[in-house]
Design a protein around this nucleic acid. Sequence first.
DNA 1: ATGTGC
Length: 474
Amino acid sequence: MQPKLNRLLRALAREGLEVAYDGRLYSVRLQGDAHAPPAEVLLPPDLPVEGKAFQQLAHLAALRHPSGGQVLRVRATPDFHPGDSGVAIGSVLHTRGLVVPGAIGTDINCGMRLHVANVSVEAFLAKRTAFVERMKGHYFFGTRDVTMGSRASEALLRDGVQGWLVETLERPLGCAGRADLAQLDAEVARIHLGGGLKGHPRWAPESFTREGLVRDAGLATIGGGNHFVEVQRVEAVEDRARAWGWGVREGQLAFMIHSGSRDVGKHVGVAWQDRARQAWPVGAPLPESGILPLGDARLVEQYLEAEATAANYAFLNRLLLAELLRQTLRELFGDVEAPLVYDVPHNLTLPYEGGWLARKGACPAGAEQPVIIPGSMGATSFLMVGCGDARALESASHGAGRARSRFSLSRGGADQSEAALGLTGVDCITLRAERRVEEAPAAYKPIRPVVDAQVEAGIVREVARLAPLLTFKA
DNA sequence: ATGTGC
């Protein structure tokens, strides 16, 4: 074991955590709480970890509901780090009889989407300036207001992108023409869960559905933080047969989208974290972690429907971002084909083994499923395939993990030179210079050890690597 | 994560 980690774990033991390890798999539990399952995390060698993240993990595992709901297992991904709501980013939570709104938070159905395109890298780079100008002209600065009719919006919120498409085929709108809609219809099969869960418009913000229009809610915008749109090059293919089957070839141009449910997820997440507080049984001691589960069956059902509503919105948000990018390529390069490889959520509660599995910043990694692990700005991204590892709760990391807070980099007196931030050679278009600093490569851990640890543990296998050419951040 | 914080 690494000396630094050893010191950290000793400190955690003094703070009331039982700590054990077996190879690279570490487990923690609150001392004296024999009923709680241990919380496990796989750690790559020589990467910084924060004690607070371990604390959050142990408290999550210790959670139970007075009505009998329980936590069955907690597992964290190798990129886990402390989260604001008391739940570490990278936590995977298996429960029965309870769900935890704070274990998803506000970034509901944050996820990844990958397309490849039959434009050569050379041709693309030759028109880079024109491409950037067109991109600035619409969604990524939020200047393009995407609206839709009441039937399409209601169908979207109830059923996801398939419902939206059915209504949209009757009344084409805004950014999509009829020919494009036929392709979108064919691509629904490449969206995890078919791009839809059972939701209901009643959970969307009131302003969102007013006058039967969906507007001013950030539809087809990237969002902040680690979210991005990136043009990439497939720099290496490791599993040729699988990559071929997925339409991915070495040297291809590709684009990747990391975005979520924007204001709709925030609305649902905030409302339900409050609701969980209100619904906590009178007289029952509050968990010291501040993490509050829902245990009443009816409330659980309602929360999941609200979460699904925001998730449906996120699926469409990523779809529209991709559609705008695909159209921009067509404007510049003619009849471009840019098929979807896969779209996968990494912030969602889903049914699992008779209970629920909440992934907070963790990518589903079921057997044979495409897994998309983005690198941070300037870093390689990975297309992998899941191995269905039950010990890891069929989950992989959703990135490299943040190493430094936004504040510590932007205003914490850090060296803001290009070299110190790791920005040398990075081509990034942002709305504000501040973003480049907050999300600079120096803000994140290296992705390679995080990926390697998961390959060695049998959680995922590598299919292809993608190198960034041009990154857009809000 | 969030038209935002430290």
